[in-house]
Amino acid sequence: METVLALLSGLLTAAAVWLMLSGNLLRFLFGLLLLSNAVNLAIFAAGRLTGAAPPLLGPGGALPGHEMANALPQALLLTAIVIGFGLFAFALALTIRAWRSFGHLEVDRMRLAEPDEGEK
């Protein structure tokens, strides 16, 4: 199972890099989204995939008798997904603003803050 996840994560990363190199801001963002999902999968796999039960205490705080899964990677993942969601939403809003002020999303043509010194 880890192998499948590793392959999937690699595939997502490859697709992400391809999208991110394309010079269009929106495509870049989708690439970033794929990349963060690839990373989330990697963390998930790094936390080991087991068939163990969730680490919840029984009534009265009794320890369950069976093997328990490590909940920490999932907690990290949840945090990372939430943060990623917030950052992505901001980046999306920024993209809309950029589209409205420039009329295009070609990163190569965004030279407003760094004009060619020669053109002055």
Binding site: L25, A42, A45, A46, A91, L94, S101, M110
Partner: peptide, 28 residues
């Protein structure tokens, strides 16, 4: 500022993803 922010945001997001990946692998 929008133009500057596009570059600042995108590159810092990549660094964020890298950091997260490294932290996850460290834990693993």
């Amino acid at each position: 500022a929008i133009d500057g922010a596009v570059k600042y945001v995108t590159l810092n997001l990549i660094s964020t993803v890298l950091f997260l990946c490294a932290a996850g692998l460290t834990y693993g």
